[in-house]
Amino acid sequence: MMIREVSTQEIIKVVKDLCIDANYNLGTDVLAAFDQAIENEKSETAREVLRELKENARIAREEKAPICQDCGLAVVFMEIGQDVHITGGDLKAAINEGVRQGYEEGYLRKSACNPITRKNTGDNTPAIIHLEIVPGDKIKLIVAPKGGGSENMSRVTMLTPAAGMEGVKDFVVNRVKESGSNPCPPTIIGIGVGGTFERSAMLAKKALLRTLGERNPDPELANIEKEIFARIEKLGIGPMGYGGTTTSLDVFLEMEPCHIASLPVAVNIQCHAARHKEAVI
């Protein structure tokens, strides 16, 4: 097996470009979901908000401006093929350098700060980096800027096993209900069931990387996604919480085995500015 070399210089460049692309260009799946929502939504006020979101995405794309002023913390997922050798220095430093350059050159807002003093780090680093080693000789990079408003409404809970799937559904729907207008609905709901405390949160976060409309391959879990989506639709929260039938654009659930004593559940809420862009090196 040949070892393929990838330089940190190339990683810096790709991360930089993904940061800018993700913040300027909303995914076509989200745009299509806006169109469908405009067609189905019952409230005129809500339709007007949805039309504004569509227009906002057009302006951002054409003028190369951030979709939202909250350009997020830079969440970077990196899958590294086990036959890749990274040359030219520290990998994590390279990812952070890419974020630094992307947020500076793209005129993106720097939102990273000390949790207690609230002093801004000034360059939106450190990035939130998730590394995974996979088979092959490629590197896959995903940059998913995550805004604070919707992240603040996200939760992890440890249910008792007796609560079962009904408990999971109730927890998710209640979380969306209690979040109300705060996370910038229409939202996308990422749900992680199982694993450990932190693994459930990771599953919920990764679920948000799916393309809108893409169901869990397990038919039973796909049905649960649809059922939760239908219950959320009935909450009536609507776009920006002004009332309406479009509260979420999609619900994604991921599940893994957990401890015999536990039932971890995480809900990661994503605002309608659902930004993630990927590249393969």
Partner: peptide, 13 residues
């Protein structure tokens, strides 16, 4: 007053 969250490019105009 509410302004439309996430419509930052539109509002800036």
């Amino acid at each position: 007053f509410g302004a439309t969250g996430g419509a930052g490019a539109l509002i800036a105009k």
